[in-house]
Amino acid sequence: MADDNLPNRTFTHPDVFTRGIAEGWADPRPDPRDLTADEWTQRIDEAWIPFTLVDGRPVNPREQTNIRYGRNLLGHWAEQKCADALVAAHDEHGHRRIVMIDRRDRAGWALPGGYVDPGETALDAAVRELREEAGLVLPMATWRVSPPLYVRDPRASCESWMVTKVARTDLGTYTTLPTLTPSDDAAQAAWIPADSYLALVTHLRAVHGGELFPAHRELLAAALS
């Protein structure tokens, strides 16, 4: 049996082949070499962060994980485009809060977000996920969309990874913050104090007994600095 710490480890979680395929979030093809040359050409051309193929297998452009072959806990081959909504507001004392959801899969507290569907822009996807997961619709908001960001996601591998764009808006000062209604992938939705990254994670632990979603730690540390 191969040592799990070796960088040439092969692993795809069994859920990818069962639940993932049944629910539609996983590619049913068990090997990246099952994709056609035209499919790979399209994926490389459309990638937000350039990547290469070696012997028909994609290579993670940003990091070497401990899983060289396979998809770990992700369903796709190579880059998956995502979008996240970072919505801020301030109370009358100038303290910042941001919208966060407690993921239903118990992976932690995260920004509303998810996959960019075919034909969507990153902003379209972020606004949709904000509505679906937090019940928040902001027709008059002014958004800024970040450049592509590689996501350091513990579910990734050297052949399957996430790239996101963050859509940000600041709603200004509120005495009563807009109501949030969790649904879809969210068990809870809340306005979390976020004057700093430390304030955010401290509040999640002290008040909600929760942790920050690992894939959003680096992203939010940078965004809230």
Rank of each mutant, 00 (worst) to 15 (best):
57 R>E: 12
32 P>F: 06
35 L>N: 06
53 L>T: 05
50 P>Q: 01
48 W>Y: 08
62 R>I: 09
51 F>W: 02
46 E>H: 10
55 D>A: 09
53 L>G: 11
37 A>E: 14
39 E>A: 03
63 E>C: 10
63 E>I: 08
58 P>W: 04
50 P>W: 00
60 N>P: 04
66 N>W: 14
36 T>Y: 08
48 W>Q: 04
39 E>N: 02
48 W>A: 06
62 R>Q: 15
66 N>S: 13
45 D>E: 12
66 N>C: 11
64 Q>Y: 09
50 P>E: 00
45 D>I: 02
59 V>M: 11
41 T>C: 14
32 P>S: 09
33 R>M: 09
56 G>Y: 03
65 T>R: 12
50 P>D: 01
64 Q>F: 09
42 Q>A: 10
52 T>K: 14
41 T>Q: 13
41 T>S: 15
33 R>W: 07
56 G>K: 00
52 T>A: 14
42 Q>P: 11
42 Q>K: 07
61 P>D: 04
60 N>Y: 03
56 G>W: 04
55 D>T: 03
55 D>S: 10
40 W>T: 05
64 Q>G: 08
53 L>A: 04
61 P>F: 03
57 R>G: 11
56 G>V: 01
57 R>N: 10
60 N>T: 02
33 R>L: 07
42 Q>M: 05
38 D>N: 09
48 W>I: 01
63 E>D: 11
53 L>M: 05
34 D>A: 13
34 D>T: 08
52 T>C: 12
37 A>Y: 11
35 L>G: 08
45 D>H: 08
46 E>V: 07
66 N>F: 15
35 L>Y: 07
64 Q>N: 11
37 A>G: 15
62 R>Y: 15
58 P>T: 06
65 T>K: 13
46 E>W: 10
46 E>I: 04
60 N>C: 06
60 N>D: 06
56 G>T: 03
32 P>W: 03
61 P>W: 04
59 V>S: 15
56 G>D: 06
45 D>C: 11
45 D>M: 09
41 T>D: 15
39 E>G: 04
65 T>W: 10
59 V>L: 09
50 P>Y: 02
46 E>S: 13
41 T>N: 15
55 D>V: 02
60 N>I: 00
62 R>K: 12
42 Q>S: 09
64 Q>C: 11
48 W>S: 04
43 R>I: 03
54 V>S: 15
43 R>C: 06
59 V>N: 10
54 V>R: 15
37 A>D: 15
58 P>Q: 05
37 A>C: 13
48 W>N: 02
65 T>Q: 07
62 R>D: 15
41 T>I: 10
48 W>H: 05
62 R>L: 12
32 P>C: 06
36 T>N: 03
50 P>G: 00
34 D>K: 08
65 T>D: 06
58 P>M: 01
40 W>R: 04
50 P>K: 00
49 I>Q: 02
33 R>C: 14
57 R>P: 14
56 G>A: 02
54 V>F: 14
62 R>V: 10
39 E>W: 07
38 D>T: 07
38 D>Y: 05
66 N>M: 14
55 D>L: 01
35 L>I: 01
40 W>H: 07
46 E>P: 09
64 Q>E: 12
45 D>P: 12
39 E>L: 03
38 D>L: 09
38 D>R: 00
42 Q>H: 11
34 D>G: 13
43 R>Y: 08
44 I>Q: 14
42 Q>G: 12
40 W>C: 06
40 W>N: 06
59 V>E: 14
61 P>M: 00
35 L>P: 09
38 D>I: 07
61 P>A: 03
38 D>V: 04
